[in-house]
Design a protein around this nucleic acid. Structure first.
Length: 419
RNA sequence: GUGGUCGUAGCUCAGCUGGUAGAGCACUCGGUUGUGGUCCGAGAUGUCGCGGGUUCGAGCCCCGUCGAUCACCCCA
């Protein structure tokens, strides 16, 4: 074991793979931005109470997966396990709900859950999320789903599916729950499972064990209990998705892990990942704002798992053809150490003019320096020796074609700005 | 939190029934005068995850531990 190593279960991204991570994250964010969502930058830690009330005591996330500690002032602090609760807190705290509605925000960052690590499941993971608050309308439900779907298509993902359902309103949920509990009480379950069912009977729908799935086959479905309004909303969302040619399947057994969801709920699942195949999910939450002490505003949002989406992209071979994503225009090589300060200055002045360029550092032989030029992925390279400095001309080499053309050193910036 | 598998050079891995380590890739240098990507040659590299035990002797066996991985639970 190394003396120092990263804590268990964290994901890290470094070159060259970090460029794909960045690409994925930026693509997800762009999809939200072009729909009018604005940045919300929030703390990674919050008062523990926020998640207890916001996410729900009955959830596994709160009951056993939070990183909670006491700070120096004796306050109970928790590393955010998800993003929505923090957004709500901030909206309420800064009275954003008094402004024009809906509030449409996006956010991105690290989240923390103390789970056993697994492929696609990390203790620190990254999400891009959006929330549209203060509007209860199928149109906005559709918009939120479409933003996620557009992001995935933009990335080039094909092997994924969208599952949707409606979790109904408070009344429909209550009557369904009553029947479901009655149904479950007749089943023979082991201790752990019935304890889980007692906390949230819906969980049993999600159990992967075949005996449980068989036992649940005849269980009453929430979709059959929807109120007229919920049902009409759900129909409208489905129609909009169909019109937009966003394919989906209805999964009446879908369960969301956090307690606050109501109404439209959805999940994007990659076909190319293992057990942790959910690449994004979200839904509507009616009672959350009020629960946290704010106005009775409804909202909808999603969280997209950047780590898993990156994994899915790789599994689909999306980056195979992207051989070179380097941003460098030019790579300079000093022939001998005598030209290094000249090159260094030239480099600096080119950068001042907005040209992305780099140079071979250290005392490497020309062959080695050219190798680093190659590896840098720069579009052009140039060797600078005493001759070039004297004449003021250099040979600009196109690294792809090998073509060389003479350029005045003073005209270098024009050469690149023209492109 | 539960269970399975695994942990050898920077990376991917080989190492027979225990005798103190190897390959490919990558890396560095070179193949005569200042141009990379192919080819050829040379070179460097490891406390075999860590700790303990068994043994004359362990990378290979046993125990523990840390980590990874896969599944359950749960979820992004």
């Amino acid at each position: 074991m190394r003396e120092l190593q990263a804590p268990k279960g964290v994901s890290e991204y470094f070159p060259p793979r970090s460029q794909y991570f960045e690409f994925v994250r930026e693509t997800l964010i762009d999809s939200a931005k072009i729909a009018g969502y604005q940045l919300m930058e929030l703390p990674v830690f919050e008062d523990t109470e926020l998640f207890r009330r916001g996410v729900g005591e009955s959830t596994d996330v709160v009951s056993k997966e939070m990183y909670t500690f006491e700070d120096r002032g004796g306050r109970s602090i928790t590393l955010r396990p998800e993003g929505t609760a923090g957004v709500m807190r901030s909206v309420i705290e800064h009275n954003l709900d008094k402004l024009t509605l809906p509030i449409k925000v996006w956010y991105s960052g690290a989240y923390f859950r103390a789970e056993r690590p697994q492929a696609g499941r990390y203790r620190q993971f990254y999400q891009v999320g959006i929330e549209a608050i203060g509007l209860d309308d199928p149109e906005i439900d559709f918009e939120v789903i479409a933003i996620a779907d557009r992001a995935f298509k933009e990335l080039g993902l094909k092997e994924y599916r969208l599952e949707i359902t409606s979790l109904g309103d408070t009344k429909s949920r209550a009557s369904h729950r009553k029947d479901l509990v009655a149904y479950i009480s007749k089943l023979k379950l082991d201790e752990a499972t019935s304890a889980r069912a007692a906390l949230n009977p819906l969980r049993l729908f999600d159990d992967k064990r075949s005996e449980i799935q068989e036992a649940m086959a005849g269980a009453p479905l929430l979709l059959d209990y929807l109120s007229e309004e919920s049902s009409a909303n759900f129909e409208r969302v489905k129609d909009l998705l169909t019109e937009a040619k966003i394919s989906f399947t209805i999964n009446p057994r879908m369960v969301r892990g956090l307690d606050y969801y109501t109404g439209t709920a959805f999940e994007f699942v990659s076909e190319k990942l293992g057990a942790q195949s959910g690449i994004g999910g979200g839904g509507r939450y009616d009672g959350l704002m009020a629960e946290l002490g704010g106005n009775e505003l409804s909202g909808i949002g999603f969280g997209l798992g950047v780590d898993r989406i990156l994994l899915a992209c790789e599994a689909e071979g999306i980056f195979d053809s992207a051989i070179n994503r380097s941003d460098l225009d030019l790579f300079l090589v000093a022939l001998t150490s005598g030209e290094k300060s000249f090159v260094s200055n030239l480099l600096n002045s080119l950068r001042n003019q907005g040209i992305s360029c780099d140079m071979a550092y250290g005392d490497r032989a020309l062959k080695g320096a050219m190798k680093s030029a190659d590896k840098s992925g720069a579009k052009f390279s140039a060797v600078i020796g005493a001759d070039e400095i004297k004449s003021g001309n250099l040979s600009l080499k196109d690294m792809k074609t090998g073509e060389i053309k003479e350029v005045r050193i003073t005209a270098l910036s024009d050469e690149f700005n023209a492109n």
